[in-house]
Structure formats: structure tokens, C-alpha cells
């Protein structure tokens, strides 16, 4: 299925506009594993007939890692420039495929004059489901064991624990929970700009520990909802020598696969 993903600029040139802006994020734009998630989200939006566009070359880092590394100056530079672009296109609704982008756009841009209705892709897809605009064919996951890892910036920071689980429940699979989940979920170790630096010395890697917890459930699939969790847990699964047996999939990828997209 070929993708239909216009940019805001292309639409504006044709005098058109989109209902929703799909905010892709850096990982989703550049990392091969995360790009699959981006495509899955785009396919699902296409399938549901959502009028959406991306910023393409006009998209820029939200500033989340800069702010959390302590660089407020760089964060605000990014934010103010992004807000100018977003407001320039009169963007009202945004769906982000990354909880970090989602959190920053939703909770931090209003501080600087950028107020939008912001969804994480799990929330948006769940909404499509509820509105009857999207259906999920669960067959291909029948009999699989799936465990969901909560991203910190979707869960604890924004209190969204249900939307990803509602989506997984459509898959006709066995859904398992780790001992520590939802508000007690263990971080994957990537947040707060950690993924861009070497970890401080300790006696274990956070993502190895989390991958171990996920593997202990006997899952065939570790479902995630954040590109950074995906990178970290994929690495963790490899560390435990399970890369051939256990898949780390974003919920959007799982739903798209179920729908043969």
C-alpha cells in the first residue's frame, strides 16, 4: 500500500489544509527501527481516511532532550521557532508518535504561546477505533503472548495507561502485564537525554533490567509506545540473546500488521 503523506507546505501551496498534523519526531524520521513505526502510523491514518499532513523538512526537534539536559535556552529557541511554524499553519490538532514530543507539545508549548489539541498516537488510533473509522483484524496475533511496557512520558507524566492497552486488546492475543507496570513501570533508561550519553557507572544497565522483566513474562512480543523505548528494549532483548525469538513492536506496528498494512 503506497503512502499518501503530504506536507503542510504542499497543502498550503494548493490552498488546502489538513485536519491533523502528524508530528513524526527525530527518531521516527531517522532511525530505521522507529521509521517503521512512523510508516505504520501513516498507513493507519490513511486507512481511516484521516486528513493529515506532516511538516517534513520544516519539522524540528521539539527541544525535549535539550530541556531535560538543562539547556533551557536551546529548548526555548526550538520551541519558539516551532510554535511560529505551527501557528503559521494554524495547526489545531497534533498527533505525535513519540511520548516525549507529545508531552512537550502538549504540556510545555502552551507556556510559550503554542496551544494545540495534542494526542499520542495510541490515543488517536484508539479514538479512530471508537469512532468506527478504523477496525482491527486481530487474526495474525492469535495465540501470541504480548506484554506492554509503559513509556514514562505517556504513563506517569501524562496518566495515559489505557489507550495502548485498549489497542492491544483488539489483537486477539494473550495480554500480559509485567510485575511493575502502569504507574509503577520501570523506565527503559532513555529519558532525560540519557539515550544521547553514556550511562553513569553502576552495576547494571536499566534497559537490560527492563528487558529481563519483560522476557520473564514469557512474552513473544514486547509492545512499546515510544521510539526510544523501542531502541532500548530491542537492545535489551539482544543482550539477553532473545533477538530471534522475541519481537519489540510499537502498538502502531502491531495494529498495522494485524490489518495487513
Amino acid at each position: 500500500m503506497s503512502l499518501n503523506v503530504p506536507t503542510m507546505a504542499e497543502l498550503a501551496a494548493r490552498g488546502e489544509t489538513a485536519e491533523v498534523l502528524f508530528w513524526v519526531g527525530c527518531a521516527g524520521s531517522f532511525d530505521e527501527r522507529a521509521k517503521k513505526v512512523t510508516k505504520a502510523v501513516a498507513k493507519l491514518l490513511n486507512q481511516a481516511g484521516v486528513s493529515f499532513a506532516v511538516l517534513g523538512a520544516e519539522e524540528s526537534c521539539t527541544g525535549d532532550p535539550a530541556r531535560r539536559a538543562g539547556n533551557e535556552f536551546l529548548f526555548q529557541m526550538q520551541a519558539l521557532q516551532n510554535i511560529e511554524i505551527l501557528n503559521g499553519y494554524s495547526v489545531q490538532k497534533i498527533v505525535a508518535a513519540c511520548p516525549h514530543c507529545f508531552n512537550t507539545l502538549k504540556n510545555e508549548y502552551p507556556q510559550l504561546g503554542g496551544t494545540y489539541e495534542v494526542f499520542h498516537h495510541s490515543q488517536f488510533i484508539e479514538q479512530l477505533l471508537r469512532d468506527g473509522r478504523l477496525r482491527v483484524e486481530g487474526g495474525s496475533f492469535k495465540g501470541k503472548r504480548i506484554v506492554f511496557h509503559d513509556p514514562c512520558y505517556l504513563g506517569r507524566a501524562n496518566g495515559e495507561y489505557e489507550a495502548p492497552r485498549v489497542l492491544l486488546a483488539q489483537l486477539d492475543a494473550e495480554i500480559h502485564e509485567m510485575k511493575r507496570s502502569k504507574k509503577n513501570g520501570l523506565c527503559c533508561g532513555a529519558g532525560g537525554a540519557q539515550i544521547f550519553k553514556e550511562p553513569e557507572s553502576g552495576d547494571a544497565e536499566i534497559h537490560h533490567v527492563r528487558a529481563e522483566e519483560a522476557l520473564a513474562t514469557g512474552a513473544d512480543i514486547i509492545a512499546v509506545a515510544c521510539p526510544f523505548c523501542k531502541l532500548m528494549l530491542t537492545d535489551g532483548v539482544t543482550h539477553h540473546g532473545k533477538e530471534g525469538q522475541v519481537q519489540v513492536l510499537d502498538i502502531a506496528e502491531a495494529i498495522a500488521t494485524a490489518n495487513d498494512l
Partner: peptide
């Protein structure tokens, strides 16, 4: 971290990929 910050300043992403390529995934 400084490298990542430098990348954000220069090419709008914490990684060293050009901003112009943001839409290449499509």
C-alpha cells in the same frame, strides 16, 4: 550531551542527520 545539543542547534535533531531529510521516510 554537548554533541547532541550541537546537533539540535545545527540540524534540528539530536542526531547528525540533515533537517532537509526529515521527510525522506515517506
Amino acid at each position: 550531551v554537548n554533541v547532541a545539543m550541537g546537533n539540535i542547534e545545527n540540524n534540528a535533531a539530536p542526531w547528525a542527520y540533515p533537517q532537509a531529510d526529515r521527510g525522506n521516510w515517506i
